[in-house]
């Protein structure tokens, strides 16, 4: 081909010809890549469909189980932790938020990451039958499992909406608002984070099979380091160990995801709902000349601040976490890809 021509004294015409040829070649290469991409998209689509169908084929209640599962989980945690926190001093762990919502929100966000990574971990080895007999990309498997975790997240979200409705009717606390659509802004970042981790884990699993046990233990530790059933503000007033714990939790990427989802799903709108009530109380205090006016005003200011939606900065943090993880995952995956076939 033209690239192999070693003669450097080319005339301008020849150079132009070479350029045109390179261009044509590039175009063909692009077409080839596009074809590959379309093929992979098709495969991923089929794999996601398959995993969702297979997951629920053998259960009596089918897809309904995905909705029921986080609800039951929430119920168990609610019963255990609310009574536990009440016994140990009676302080509410969530500053007056509805504890059920607090739990459920944290649980489904963390659960999405957990299912995505834990299912992707053995995915390349499990599908060795396909990989050793067909020409296909390895990364379609972690990708498809992460995507089916996203779909499951969607189902679980229905459960969350159900609980919000329930809470709305019985305590009037959770207020629905358009904020909830911001979940769609953060979800791709969570997907990227899970995908990056899945790439690293599935690549490592082809070399070392006992990673699965380590990761299982690590996931438990990780769950306790994420404020799912407790609140990070509980560490506010204690000594060194508490502030140390706070730092550790803030180094945990899942903390930012969990908190962002809580903010946009119900927290801000709940605070917004509380503002008008507080305003009425302040007006009442001014009218009657009550002593608690200053206290009420501080409360009002705090509530208004809490009702502020997380800004662009928070979203940027999430995408930075997700992007960097995916980048690292892709590098690890690309570097080890050629050796997979000998180990699976």
């Amino acid at each position: 081909m033209s690239n192999k021509v070693e003669n450097t004294n080319l005339t301008t015409e020849e150079k132009a010809e070479l350029k045109a040829e390179n261009k044509a070649e590039f175009r063909e290469w692009l077409a080839f890549q596009k074809k590959e991409f379309v093929k992979n998209v098709n495969i991923v689509k089929q794999l996601v469909l398959r995993s969702i169908k297979v997951q629920y084929r053998n259960s009596v209640i089918g897809v309904f189980w995905t909705i029921l599962n986080p609800l039951l989980n929430m119920l168990v945690m609610y019963l255990v932790f609310s009574s536990m926190f009440q016994r140990s001093g009676g302080a509410t762990p969530t500053d007056g938020e509805t504890y059920a919502l607090y739990l459920l929100c944290g649980n489904i966000v963390f659960g999405m990451m957990r299912t995505a990574t834990f299912q992707s971990l053995p995915s390349i080895v499990q599908n060795r039958g396909l990989l050793t007999k067909n020409k296909m990309s390895y990364n379609v498997f972690p990708l498809s499992y992460t995507l089916s975790a996203v779909v499951n997240f969607g189902f679980s979200f229905i459960a969350l909406l159900g609980v919000m409705l329930f809470v709305r009717f019985f305590s009037g606390q959770a207020v629905f608002s358009f904020n909830i659509f911001l979940v769609l802004v953060a979800l791709p970042a969570l997907f990227l984070f899970s995908y990056g981790l899945s790439l690293v884990l599935s690549a490592m699993y082809t070399f070392f099979r006992d990673i699965k046990h380590f990761y299982n233990v690590f996931l438990t530790l990780w769950m306790y380091l994420t404020p799912i059933f407790y609140n990070i503000n509980m560490f506010d007033n204690a000594g060194f160990s508490a502030s140390f714990m706070k730092t550790v939790i803030k180094l945990n990427p899942m903390y930012y995801f969990v908190e962002y989802f809580r903010d946009v799903v119900y927290r801000c709108s709940a605070h917004e709902g509380a503002i008008s009530g507080l305003k009425a109380e302040v007006a009442n205090a001014i009218a009657t000349g009550s002593n608690s006016l200053a206290e009420l005003q501080v409360d009002l200011a705090a509530t208004i601040e809490a009702a502020q939606l997380p800004g662009v900065g928070a979203v940027f943090t999430l995408y930075a976490i997700g992007g960097i993880t995916t980048l690292i995952g892709a590098i690890v995956f690309m570097a080890t890809k050629r050796k997979f076939i000998y180990n699976i």
Partner: peptide
């Protein structure tokens, strides 16, 4: 090795579509 790429939990129809996608065919 025929059938090496099959998923035994899925139905025949699903397997046709999955295998077809792997061989590079659109739906």
């Amino acid at each position: 090795n025929l059938g090496a790429g099959f998923d035994y939990e899925a139905t025949g129809k699903e397997n046709v579509y999955l295998n077809g996608a792997i061989l590079g065919y659109s739906k």
